[in-house]
Design a protein around this nucleic acid. Structure first.
Lengths: 121, 121
DNA sequence: AATAAAAGTTAGATTTATCTAATTTTTGTT
DNA sequence: AACAAAAATTAGATAAATCTAACTTTTATT
């Protein structure tokens, strides 16, 4: 029915992991998301075929330009939404969980409007 | 992976339709949501089995108490979120589409926090 | 009452994203 | 080099929500 929520989550996770680890492998993603390695393996194959990631011979995963663009967009939403919810008094763990879902749901228009509003208040 | 988004949508649609129509039938839901009759038929069977709706011999669909509770909760979110987005300058049609998605993804805590914030501003 | 139209149901297909289990490949340690 | 451990892959299963196509039942019209 909906969008590429699953793919967006994988790309976002690759970006987040790459900020704290020297290299990102399938097994790192599996641990981070709580999925089985086999699920991640299939998902990486799809992302590779769609040109959103490259995988080296050693199994190191890198975002392509298109993948990075998606990942950064989702990650920005994640941070903006979770910080905003926390600012409204929502407990951190709940705010983060909610942000993980809502980040995929908003149109560009709505997200920009929210961002602008937050910046002004 | 996630919640009962589909079921919540059906229940919300039944509630919305019941506000503007004397009775609600499967075909009305199919038209409203743009689904095939067969899909709605299966979905109504599930909602019936879960005790969220009753269906009369004539095929009229009514929410049970539990169904109404879910539907009203989702519908309130729908209205609150869409009105808020519109208030931020998001075009109406986009705000409504976004609300249709976000309404299923917010925790009770986050929704209440947003509602409280809106009421105070 | 006969027939057409509308509504509802059933069976089977499709897609997506996960899983388990088994296998293969790679890496690291003795 | 041999072996164990870790990582990756493959094949097949499952679940959810939709679809198409065919069929049945109900309602409305002549």
């Amino acid at each position: 029915m909906r969008n590429n929520e699953s793919s967006e989550d994988y790309l976002e996770t690759i970006l987040m992991l790459s900020e704290v680890k020297p290299v990102v492998r399938s097994v790192d993603i599996a641990n981070e998301l709580g999925y089985k390695k086999s699920s991640v393996s299939v998902a990486m194959k799809n992302l590779r075929e769609r040109g959103n990631i490259t995988v080296t011979d050693e199994g190191y995963i890198y975002l392509t330009e298109s993948g990075k663009k998606i990942a950064e967009s989702v990650y920005e939403r994640h941070k903006t939404i979770s910080e905003w919810l926390i600012g409204l008094g929502v407990p951190g763990n709940i705010a983060l969980e909610d942000a993980c879902r809502v980040e995929h749901d908003l149109s560009e228009e709505s997200f920009e409007a929210i961002k602008k509003y937050i910046a002004e208040h």
